[in-house]
Write a protein that binds this DNA or RNA. Structure first.
Lengths: 110, 110
DNA sequence: TCACAATATATCCATATAGCTATATAGCTG
DNA sequence: CAGCTATATAGCTATATGGATATATTGTGA
């Protein structure tokens, strides 16, 4: 469980990998497409993708000759959930807002 | 700017360091207090604290003989802001909720 | 089936990281 | 100021990480 956060945060610590996630936020992409913006070798990109996949941040598909990657939001949610416990430290209005949300949620979110 | 995220995520990738932040969420603590739950040497803890401080996640004070640490929420907010861009991927209702919030904010948050 | 295209794996190198022990520094207290 | 307490720094070792190049694998299409 904590293990997951280790892998996720570690994966997110690299700017190349965050950029790859940014690209995947626009939809699935092949390895070649993901590699294109960088001056790194193709194997270097494959390695980054492996790290992201092992952290659960992306998933590999198969499509003809290529293995397109897609975003796997659950891992990012894991981070968001972890950090939510600290939100009160920077957002003073959080507590009131949170109360408010729990009341309106039945209307907004069903 | 991205540099900051590198350091922050990298600092958060270690479970000892996350546990230290968890402890600091309960208020400031000395190095000895922070070290207590772990079987690591004191210098190892000092090193972790240095990593956290350089990432901007904590700050050092001075109080008599000791140098208590406190949480520095801004760095965590940086992460939260980064991840917010991905929230729509796991929270389908986010867009509507966000719209709603921006309307009520004037009443709830002034 | 042969050659190409897309991607993965193997190997190697340089640097970074996490831990340890030993020692240094700084403030308090008698 | 001597000695204790709290913490930091130095130096060392083992392992992990990120990069490169070379090569292997797998699917497609002539």
């Amino acid at each position: 469980m904590n293990n997951k956060l280790d892998a996720i945060f570690s994966a997110l610590a690299d700017p190349t990998r965050r950029a790859i996630l940014g690209r995947l936020a626009n939809g699935k992409a092949t390895v070649a497409e993901l590699a294109d913006p960088f001056e790194l070798s193709q194997p270097a990109i494959s390695k980054h993708l492996k790290v992201l996949e092992q952290a659960g941040l992306i998933r590999s598909g198969r499509e003809a000759n290529s293995r397109p990657r897609v975003l796997e939001p659950a891992a990012l949610k894991t981070v968001a959930d972890w950090i939510a416990d600290y939100r009160r430290f920077w957002d003073q209005s959080f507590d009131r807002l949170d109360d408010y949300l729990s009341k309106v949620q039945g209307y907004e979110n069903d």
